[in-house]
């Protein structure tokens, strides 16, 4: 296996660990504040607007809201996926492999578009 291949795997794991770190901080803080409350998720209410868009989550994160910190951690995990597909494209560029560079780049574009797509 090549250096770039290993780098792809390491980026995925680094993204997961950064995500876990944030989720753990947000989650434990939330449990300290609300651990004794009763859960009720039988009915779907959706999420507050602030927790559904990247910009809103970014603001919640800087307000140090525990739920915002968790959501930001999840967002890091997702953005790591986009990054690793970009790295895969770089890997095939290094290999001078035209077909697979096109394939990886196309998947990268689909990921970017779908990330911002709203129905």
């Amino acid at each position: 296996m090549t250096r770039t291949e290993l780098l792809i795997g390491q980026v995925m794991r680094a993204g997961l660990f950064l995500s876990i770190f944030l989720v753990l901080i947000g989650g434990v803080t939330y449990l300290i504040q609300h651990g004794g409350d009763t859960i009720n998720y039988a009915v779907f209410h959706g999420e507050p607007m602030a927790l559904t868009s990247p910009l809103g989550i970014w603001q919640q994160f800087f307000d140090l809201s525990p739920r915002g910190i968790i959501q930001f951690g999840i967002l890091i995990l997702v953005m790591t996926q986009i990054l690793r597909v970009a790295l895969t494209a770089v890997y095939f560029i290094e290999m001078r492999d035209v077909i697979f560079t096109v394939i990886s780049s196309a998947i990268f574009v689909v990921l970017i578009v779908s990330f911002f797509w709203r129905d």
Partner: peptide, 17 residues
């Protein structure tokens, strides 16, 4: 999975708790 995640976030399917 990442292809659908933007839409899931937007629809409010992803709850931090």
């Amino acid at each position: 999975a990442s292809v659908s995640v933007g839409i899931y976030f937007f629809r409010g399917y992803v709850d931090p708790n």
